[in-house]
């Protein structure tokens, strides 16, 4: 790890001001991606701003028909939250499947969403549930937020404070983990609310998380696993690596979608 200055603000305003003072500061949430990157000397921030003591980022609340999760809420806390489990069990299950138990005790929703790793689980949930990302400056719809691998709509100095999830009628997430890293090689989040169906796919594409229009159309017509059969998944811009070529990942998108739909239907 390269040397850096360590800052420990206690309010979002102080975070903002610390960001302003350092050229290439990094926000440290759970650190489960940032620290390994820094350890490998692949990142060299001049300052690390620890969000661990910032007030107001760690609540899980029900607000109207939404579940609102603070940016610093750990995956383990989402997984075990009664509120989340009751309202959006698929989201709790997703959080309970990120990384491993020790990683879930540190990693946060805000960190995961801000990083937008193409193999991360949370972005699929945000997209498929039509979540809203709340920052210190504005509210951003998930559809506008994720802009390709490791790229988001966040401006410099903009800090995620919470994520708001509308409660769906039915939802499920099924992932196919990379055998080595256990990150999602393909993860599919399916949700249904009224006649609207959303299917979000993570892990597969060179452009990061995306909504699968063809699968959504098929499932809007009929929300069952059979409806997905034979629906072509365009893998032309999918990731190809030693673990899975694009065509294998395309197959997995189809298979995981079927399984997610079956799960969402409680079968």
């Amino acid at each position: 790890m390269y040397a850096f200055a360590y800052q420990r603000p206690t309010t979002v305003r102080q975070v903002q001001s610390a960001l302003g003072k350092h050229d290439d500061a990094k926000l440290l949430a759970g650190g489960q991606t940032l620290l390994p990157t820094m350890k490998q000397r692949l990142a060299s921030p001049s300052a690390v701003i620890d969000l661990g003591h910032v007030a107001g980022l760690s609540a899980i609340e029900k607000k109207g028909r939404n579940i609102v999760i603070g940016a610093m809420v750990r995956h383990a806390d989402v997984a075990t939250s009664d509120l989340v489990r009751e309202a959006i069990p698929a989201l709790a299950a997703l959080a309970g499947g990120i990384g491993d138990p020790a990683v879930r005790n540190r990693g946060t929703i805000g960190g995961s969403v801000a990083n937008n790793d193409p193999s991360a689980d949370y972005p699929a949930a945000l997209l498929a549930l039509g979540a809203t990302i709340v920052t210190n400056k504005r509210k951003i719809a998930a559809d506008d937020f994720f802009q390709g691998m490791f790229t988001t709509a966040l401006d410099d100095g903009e800090i995620i404070t919470k994520v708001s999830f509308p409660v769906p009628a039915k939802a499920a997430y099924v992932k196919f983990p990379n055998p080595a890293s256990r990150y999602a090689m393909v993860g599919v989040f399916v949700s249904k609310k009224g006649s609207d169906v959303k299917v979000a796919v993570t892990g597969a594409s060179n452009e990061g998380v995306f909504r699968a229009a063809g699968l959504e159309a098929a499932l809007k017509a009929k929300f069952n696993a059979k409806a997905v059969e034979g629906v072509a998944v365009d893998g032309s811009n999918f990731i190809s690596d030693i673990h899975g070529t694009a065509d294998y990942r395309a197959n997995l998108v189809n298979v995981m979608t079927k399984r997610a739909v079956t799960k969402a239907l409680g079968k």
């Binding site: 055998p179 080595a180 890293s181 990150y183 030693i242 673990h243």
Partner: peptide, 11 residues
């Protein structure tokens, strides 16, 4: 070496 960590070498 593509498989130079546990991210790619499957233990």
């Amino acid at each position: 070496l593509v498989t130079a960590s546990y991210m790619d070498y499957c233990m």
